[in-house]
């Protein structure tokens, strides 16, 4: 469980929003351009962005809860989006990132990983470095 106290301590260093040009060029896909734009708008809103089931206060899946918990431990300021609230984003993001499961953690618009990868990077200490950008 994530405690309120942990969340309040995530102020960390505040970051400037990204520009669209900061995002990695995504290979051609049949993703609807308007949907792609919505996804990129979300990714630009914070350098660290988590697509999850539920939200950090009330995660709706154990894997999402785990990654939100790790980010709280890392004291990182991040944006998040509940994919259960929007089926278009839920499906579109799978195409955008070419990754089939949630949660998905992005840093500077680039997918770092889902629960397995993030947990392993956290255990090895590499995640802190990646989150610094």
């Amino acid at each position: 469980m994530i405690k309120m106290r942990d969340l309040e301590m995530t102020e960390g260093k505040k970051r400037d929003p990204l520009k669209l040009s900061d995002l990695k060029e995504v290979p051609e896909s049949n993703l609807d351009p308007a949907l792609k734009e919505r996804i990129e708008e979300l990714l630009c809103s914070k350098e660290v962005f988590l697509f999850m089931k539920g939200n950090p206060m009330a995660p709706q899946c154990g894997f999402s809860a785990n990654v939100a918990g790790i980010l709280a431990q890392e004291r990182v300021d991040y944006g998040h989006f509940d994919i259960l609230s929007d089926m278009d984003i839920r499906q579109g993001l799978k195409d955008y990132s070419n990754w089939p499961t949630f949660p998905q953690l992005f840093v500077k618009g680039e997918l770092v990983g889902g629960n397995d990868v993030i947990s392993e990077l956290y255990s090895s200490g590499e995640l802190s470095e990646i989150l610094k950008g």
């Binding site: 089939p100 990983g113 990868v117």
Partner: peptide, 14 residues
Amino acid sequence: KLLDQHRIIMDILN
């Protein structure tokens, strides 16, 4: 990268 290592296996399974 770890994600790309996992992608190699995912692609084979996929």
